[in-house]
């Protein structure tokens, strides 16, 4: 698989480390009354979709940036690559 890095251009997926679903960016509120359940679901449960999914890849052998990659789990086709920082800022996070 080739990941088209927004800053560095096309890079071999072997340079990256995979983390998982992009929803891992949205950490639950630790002060919530339902925090224990929220963190259980955040940490252990997965949607695990067959088809298009957004996921986090870390460019460990490169510029060490986190990316949000939109990829199809049935075909391995990558349709979109964004910097995770941009995704988090767009979602209203401060960094």
């Amino acid at each position: 698989m080739i990941i088209n890095h927004p800053l560095l251009g096309p890079r071999d997926a072997a340079e990256f480390v995979y983390l998982g679903d992009a929803s891992l960016i949205d950490r639950p509120d630790w002060q919530s009354d339902t925090a224990a359940d929220d963190f259980y679901e955040y940490q252990y449960l997965r949607d695990n979709p067959a088809g298009e999914t957004r996921e986090l890849w870390f460019h460990e052998q490169g510029d060490r940036s986190w990316l949000v990659v939109t990829r199809n789990t049935l075909t391995h086709e990558i349709t979109k690559v964004e910097l995770a920082r941009d995704v988090a800022l767009a979602a209203g996070r401060d960094r």
Binding site: M1, D12, Y18, E55, T73, L74, H76
Partner: peptide, 11 residues
């Protein structure tokens, strides 16, 4: 990496 494709990659 997550996949339902019954094939892997070369690395």
């Amino acid at each position: 990496y997550n996949t339902y494709a019954q094939r892997g990659n070369l690395p």
